[in-house]
């Protein structure tokens, strides 16, 4: 064996000494297997449900079937297309006990995890509670004053800021395929936590979810909650804010109005409220007429209300 070959052997031997600890791989394996079992169960359940629905539709209801009117609530309940949203990035490490409570999609995608003990706190409010978020940004922010560092060998920038929250917030930004930002609030070692989360982030094009509703084919932008059966979804534009929630709004009675084949109400603040498929639908818009609110509510398309895609809410990794 010549010098080059011996050097190759030595170099490869040295590289082998940097083998990572098996713990994270075994843990990730256990998580994925559990997830797969859960998916198989869901598919089996969905299959049984689909068969039951087909039998019912074919045998029981065939003699009195009529296509729903395009403006009826039944038509609005038909699942649309294009509401599945890709969640391209996911962390594989979070502080112990953190669960996901918020997802925001659109030009930027954000996911938020909080301690399980704080999952009932509305994540859309600035409460200062501890939280970890991962955001896919459109572009790098202004990095003046940020410290340069690295994430998985890629150039990254970090800063710790004191905002309106009780404790400091550490932000870590790096340029992978997309620009990604990890934000950590309320952790004693925020920088270390942010780095650990960032180092564990992986791209996974298989991760997607179906937002609970859409309007004119555009999915709800924000979804949050504490459990799969307790959640709120929000869609907003310059004119309207539409929410669909399992929780009862502050006001539900007011001037009666017919909407989506049901009786709703225009409440004191001018919003339209109606209960549909066991959920509360609210449409508000400054200066919008009742007809406009009703028209907007009619265009809302709810998604698979028998089994909405909210299983991720309140779950950890």
């Amino acid at each position: 064996m010549n010098d080059t070959e011996q050097l190759i052997k030595d170099a490869l031997g040295q590289l082998a000494e940097r083998t990572p600890h098996p713990g994270p791989t075994l843990n990730a394996l256990r998580r994925k297997r559990k997830q797969q079992r859960s998916n198989i169960f869901l598919m089996a359940t969905a299959g049984v449900a689909a068969v039951a629905v087909l039998i019912f539709a074919g045998v029981v209801a065939s003699d009195r079937y009529a296509p729903p009117d395009a403006n009826s609530a039944a038509a609005a309940l038909m699942p649309g297309t294009g509401q599945t949203v890709d969640i391209e990035y996911t962390p594989h490490w979070l502080p112990d006990g953190y669960v996901e409570t918020f997802r925001s999609v659109g030009e930027e995608t954000t996911r938020v995890w909080v301690p399980a003990s704080a999952k009932d706190v509305d994540p859309t409010l600035q409460t200062g509670h501890p939280r970890v978020s991962l955001t896919s940004l459109q572009a790098l922010p202004d990095l003046s004053g940020w410290l340069e560092t690295s994430v998985r060998g890629l150039k990254a920038w970090a800063r710790t800021v004191q905002g309106q929250s009780a404790g400091p917030t550490t932000e870590l930004v790096w340029q992978a395929q997309d620009v990604l930002r990890v934000s950590v609030r309320g952790q004693e070692a925020g920088q270390q936590t942010a780095m650990s989360v960032a180092e564990s982030v992986r791209s996974d094009t298989k991760i997607s979810f179906l937002t609970p509703f859409s309007l004119d084919g555009k999915p709800a932008g924000d979804v949050w909650g504490s459990t799969p059966s307790r959640w709120t979804a929000r869609w907003h534009s310059e004119k309207y804010v539409v929410t669909v929630s399992t929780s009862t709004p502050a006001q539900t009675s007011g001037t009666p109005v017919s909407v989506r084949g049901r009786q709703g109400a225009i409440v004191a603040d001018g919003s339209l409220v109606v209960r549909d498929s066991g959920l509360w639908l609210t449409v508000s818009g400054d200066g919008q007429s009742t007809d406009d609110l009703v028209d907007t509510a009619t265009r809302v398309s709810l998604q698979h209300m028998d089994h909405p895609d909210t299983e991720w809410i309140g779950k950890g990794l």
Binding site: L12, L15, A16, T19, P22, P24, T25
Partner: peptide, 20 residues
């Protein structure tokens, strides 16, 4: 898992990729 990780680390020259 450890022998496989060691082999994958040497093969990929990247411990993160080896884990994946």
């Amino acid at each position: 898992v450890t022998p496989l990780l060691r082999y994958a680390t040497v093969l990929t020259c990247d411990p993160h990729l080896a884990q994946d």
